[in-house]
Each structure stands twice: as structure tokens, then as C-alpha cells.
Nucleic acid binder design. Structure first.
Lengths: 211, 211, 211, 211
DNA sequence: CATGAATGAGGTTTCATTCAT
DNA sequence: TATGAATGAAACCTCATTCAT
């Protein structure tokens, strides 16, 4: 069912030729640019095509409708974040729990800040395109990676359960979102990141005791 | 500046007569209903008026434009949440820190769940109506109430700083949002609430030590 | 099923105010004008609205889409024809069969020629709007009226069966259509009409003998 | 004038090579398939090319535009019908009038039913491509063949005039169309065919007496 | 004050056609 | 010759907003 619902947002054709790949990339990038400069409600397919330097028709060759374009951009962004998190989890295998948590928080904040503008812009369109459903898939991947990582921690005993991990990620996302939307400075972000590390570490420790 | 930007969203006239108050209430409620049943992008002023049982013209007597209506609904919801939190903070004066945190987390989760549908619905329109700005005001009030509360805690030493409190609230909001959007059951919400209590308590304790 | 399929073509709201009725009439008339002057494929809702002296939005207040507008015009025309035929049938009650047939052929040709331009124009759009289904309803009414009429004929023995009547009407329609599309002169139409009378009379007589 | 107007619909190049002939045939057949499965307004050149297993570009090598393709298909169909009728007329030379009429009605119904789907499908596009003009040419050929045939009838005296023949053909076409559009069963078609024979015979006999 | 018909700018989407490869 | 990516004019339709009644 969820799959069916999402199918309407799937890209129309996969670019096989070099020319096409460039075009698709340009369209996605243009969508982000327009989102940033005009806002979600002023984002029109015509404007995106214009900014991408192609005609509207071309845009519609690759995306069956406006929503599918935004969903693709959204998914792409989430994909980068998720992959960065997976990499961070893998890299942290075998470390003590506290170090693990520090590393993934840092990785999360870093990847988000790297394209902070996009993150903020995409919050705007999330609801129009079945954002929560896409997020859910991303969360599953992250949870899986975190699980695998935690099992290699020498001092994670007992292992945190699923709920604990989900709550931790949700807290991270929430703090990050608030921070991004408030337009925080680099220094503030650093402080916030440290707090987030502390939050995760203390919460995980407490959760271990409490269970 | 922020004030000017927001002025466009202010309601047009204050209902002084009983009849008007009823009408305004009906319109707001209708807006929520439409949001829930049709989604943000299918919400039209005509549809809202229809559902409220009045004509479009009447709607425009009370709200100068669509955004002001949505902003009013959004603000109203946030107001309820904020007031509930202020009340909870006040009520918890003088208690030990852990109890305080438990109480406000419980209050937060309860008030959000009370009209969970509205919360979810409003996430959709938040960005179109300067949501973050409205949220910021709400956060300020909550921080103020929390500050006042914490100063009466016998065991809060040192007092948590502003960043700590903000991070805590942001974490709470993030976890709550994820939970609401995942359509969690009552039982899951209870579990999540307990986790959130744990999170806040452990984080506050750790923050006190760390500073 | 047929009803459901047609429901998409139903007018959107019934005009209750005097102003509206005028508007609706203007739109229908404009649709015919555009059909005549530009042809079916050049008929756009914008053009129709322009010709009617209203805005596109107004057009869409009364018809949910282009097809429903054309279907309404089509149905209206068919209605006039059908009513004229019903009247002619009724008027011919009690006459000898040959006179009956002459009268209804004359009535048919006359009513079609009266707005010959519209008839021709509507052939163009018939298929886009479920024309055959609408026609079927009209035929049923005409068959019923013809049946009632024939039963009062002193010399119709045996009474023609349903197939015979349907074939006769189909033949009439076919001849009429060919004639209209060939842009025949008034004199040619008169001749054709006489032939059609002859055709119906001879066919009915033969059918009576043959059964 | 008519010639000029039609010139835009002429095929672009005559397929001289075997490969081309196959391609053209595939395109025509695909056009019919699309017409049947999607309807006239959903028929796009791209879709036709797809179904034919060639690229749009190739389609445009053989037909200068969409209309010329449809016109070609239409004309081709009419051609088959006309040729079948000419053959039937020729074959009936020298027979009594009643037999002649029976034979050509049977031939007409048979050839139409042979590809009933195409007939119905083509009614849809007839108006977009100057259908009546194409039909007129076909009718002329059929009239000529019928004339030649009738002159060999031992019992056709006086010979029916042009109007009579035209009316007869128009009646045949009208009855056939109504039948096809109503989706009649094979049995119904047989009955209708018998009626049509009767109609033509009686009408021709009456026309002979009346003149 | 309430109504709801009218407005029309502007958004999304389609599709016949071309042309560089 | 065949391909199919690109084009962009133009179609359909929506909906926030106004204003005469």
C-alpha cells in the first residue's frame, strides 16, 4: 500500500545517455535553488525548468509531476544523510559506547550542516510529498546500522532496544531541525553538537541501567 | 521587522459579539477538519467556509487572507500547548528536579496527544505561514516558565543554562513529532513518554555535572 | 454503470439566481458559436468564455470540465429534437400509417434543419463526450412515442416491432447526417425529405407484409 | 480547393522498400490499436510509434503530421469497404434488382463487421481529418459501381436516379453506424441485415413507381 | 453584516514536431 | 535512415479574493 502510494512519485525514466544524466542533475539542483530563493509555494515547475536551463517539457520527461521531482530531491538528500550515518556507524565499530555516540552525533551534525540550506528548504515540502514515509525508510536503515554498530561495543550491556534507538534519533533530528530553522551561527552549532553528544551519551547510559 | 512581517497574518477584527465568536470558532474548527480530511494543498478558503457553514465572504470578514487564518489556527494550537506547559511548570514549583522534568514531559505529551490530529495536520502548513517564527515565541515563553520553575528546585545546582533547556525542548518536540507522524498506538506513546522522561532527567543531570 | 460514467459530465451547480441563468445560457450559446466558427479541436474553454463575455472561472463554476459543457450542449440539442419528435408523434395520433410517417419525417427534417449548423457542429464532438450513450436515451424516448402513435393507426396491422422502428430511425438519422454534412441546398433538402418519406412508408409497409 | 485542403494530409513518401512497407503497416495497425484501447483524444504520435515498435522520428518519416496518419488509416479502411462494394456490384451484374440489393447489403454489412472495431474507432476521428470529404469520394465510387450494376438489371425500369441511390447508401450507413455503436451481437446484426435488405428493396421498388 | 457569483492570473501538464547524433 | 531527447506553445483548470446585492 505504501509502495503503491509512493509509486506516483517515482521518476519517469532513468537517464541512460550522458546528456540525460546532466539534464536530470541540473533539474534537481535547480529545484533546490528555487526552493531556497523563492520558497516552497513559489516553486513552480516552469521556474525550476527555467533555472535548470531546460524547457518544462524536458522536466516532465524525467518526472511525471511536480511532486515526484520534489520527492526525488528529498529522497536524494535523505540518502546522503543516511549513507553518511551508515559510514559513521561502520567506522565506529568496536569502540566504546560513548565514543560511538559522539562519532555518530558529529557525523549527523556535520552532514546536515554541510548542506544546511537544503535541509531547511526540504522541511517545507516534506508534507506535500509523503515525506514521513520516505523518512521512515531512512530511519530503518539508520537503525539497522546503529544496531550493528552497538553490538560491537565492548561496554554496551545490555544492548539498547529499538525504542531507545528510535527515541535517540528522533531527539537528534528534532534538535537539529530547531537549530537549522533558527539560523544558528557556526559557534552555536558547535555548542549544540556538544550538548547533543552529552544528551545521547547520558540517555543511553540511563537507558541501560533502567531496563 | 519580524513584527511587520507577521502583521499580514493578524486577524482582521476581534469578535465582540457572541454570534461572531461562534462564527470564528466554526471557521477555525472547519479549517482543521479540512486540513485533516483533504490535506494542506487541497485546503481552499471556499472549502473551509463551506464546512463551517458560512460563505467565503464571511470568512474574509474575519481573516484578511488564507494565511492569516492558518496562522491563527496554528498560533491557537501552540498557545494551548504553551499554556499547558506554563501551568505544568508552575504546578511543579518546589519539587525535586527529576519530578519536575517528569511532570512537564507528561504534560507535554498529554496536551499534544489530546488533539494529536491537529498537531499532525498543522505540521503541514507550518512552513507556509512563518511557522518557525511563531514557534520561536512559544519557545521563549516555555523557556521562561521552565527557568522560573527550575529556580525553585531544591536540587538543581548549578541551574541549567539556556542552551540546555532549548536542547531539551527541541528533543522533546522532535521525539513527539516523529511519534505523531508514525501514527503510534496509545501503548507506544506511553512507552515513548517514559523514555522521554528518562532522556530529560539523564540529560539534565549530565548537563549539571558537565558544566 | 452508464450512469456513473456520465456523472463526470454533469453540470456542477444549478443556477438559482437570475444572473446565473443568463450566464449559463450565454456560455452554451458561445460554445455553439465557437464550435461553428473554429471547429471542435480549436474549441477551448478560454475561447468559449471569451465569446460568452465571462471569465474562464465563471465557466468552471457551472461545468466541472470541458466535456461536461459539450455534453450539456449536445444533450440540450438532442432534447429539442426529441421533444419535437414526441410532439409530432402525438399530433399524428389516429391518422393512417402513411400520414403518420410523412408527418414525423417532416418534423424530423424540419427540426434538424432549423438549427442545421448546430447539428453538424455537434457531430464533431459526439464521440468525445459519450455521445452514443446520450443518443441511446433519446432514441428510447422517440421509440416510445412512436410506439404509442402507431398503436392508434387504423391501418397498422400488424404493429411494427422494435427492430423495425429502430432501423427506420437509424436510416432517417443516417440520411439526415449525410445530407447535412454535404451542405445541401434547401431544394435538395426538400427532395431528400420526400425520398425519406417514401423510404419510411415503403419500408414500413414491406415490414408489415414480411412479418 | 478541396484538393489543396487535403494535400496536407497526404503521406510523405511512398514506401518502395520492403522494410518500409512493413514499417508503414505496423504504424497503421498501431494507430488502430491505440484508437481502440485509448480513444481518439489519448492517441498521441509517441504512443502510436511505441506500439508500432519504432521511434517517433520514424513515424514522421512516413507521415508529415498526425492528421495525415489518421487520414491514411481512415482512407484505407474506406478503401477496403469501397472495393468490397465495387466487387459485390460487379458480381451482381445481370441479376434481378432484388437480388442485387440483397447482395450489396450483405456485402456492406459483412465488410463492416469484419473489422467492426476499426469502424467504430474511426468514427471518432472522422471529423478531425476531413472525414466527410474522404467519405464523399468513396460514395462517388460506390454510386458509380451501383449505377453500372443497375443498368444490367433486367427489371430495373426506370433506373433509379442519383438521389435515390445516395439516400439508399446513406440509410445503409446510418443503420450500420447505429448498430455498431450499440455494440450489437452477431444475431442482432443478422436481423438488422435482413431488415436492411428489406428496406432497400422496398424503397427501390417504391422509388421506381413514384418517379 | 452576509452572500456567492465573478474574476483572471498563474499553475500544472501534454504532445506534435524537430534535429543532432 | 533511425533514434529519442528536447522543445515550447497552448490547453485545462484552480482558487484567493472582491464586491454588488
Amino acid at each position: 500500500m505504501a509502495t503503491n502510494a509512493l509509486s506516483a512519485f517515482e521518476p519517469r525514466k532513468t537517464p541512460v545517455q550522458a546528456r540525460s544524466a546532466v539534464t536530470v542533475e541540473a533539474i534537481c539542483e535547480a529545484a533546490i535553488q528555487v526552493l531556497l530563493s523563492h520558497g516552497a509555494d513559489k516553486l513552480t515547475t516552469t521556474r525550476v525548468a527555467e533555472r535548470a536551463g531546460v524547457s518544462v517539457g524536458t522536466l516532465y520527461q524525467y518526472y511525471p509531476n511536480k511532486e515526484s521531482l520534489l520527492a526525488a530531491v528529498f529522497e536524494d538528500h535523505l540518502n546522503r544523510v543516511t549513507m553518511a550515518m551508515e559510514a559513521a556507524c561502520k567506522k565506529a565499530h568496536g569502540q566504546p559506547l560513548a565514543d560511538m555516540l559522539r562519532d555518530i552525533v558529529v557525523a549527523f551534525v556535520d552532514i546536515k550542516m554541510e548542506r544546511a540550506d537544503i535541509s531547511v528548504a526540504l522541511y517545507q515540502v516534506s508534507s506535500d510529498i509523503g515525506g514521513p514515509a520516505i523518512v521512515k525508510k531512512s530511519i530503518q536503515r539508520m537503525r539497522k546500522a546503529a544496531d550493528a554498530m552497538l553490538q560491537t561495543a565492548p561496554d554496551a550491556d545490555p544492548l539498547p532496544d529499538r525504542l531507545t534507538i528510535d527515541v535517540m534519533f528522533a531527539a537528534m533530528a528534532g534538535v537539529m531541525k530547531t537549530m537549522l530553522e533558527s539560523g544558528a551561527s557556526a559557534a552555536m552549532v558547535r555548542n549544540m553538537r556538544d550538548q547533543l553528544v552529552l544528551l545521547c551519551q547520558s540517555y543511553m547510559a540511563a537507558a541501560a541501567l533502567g531496563s
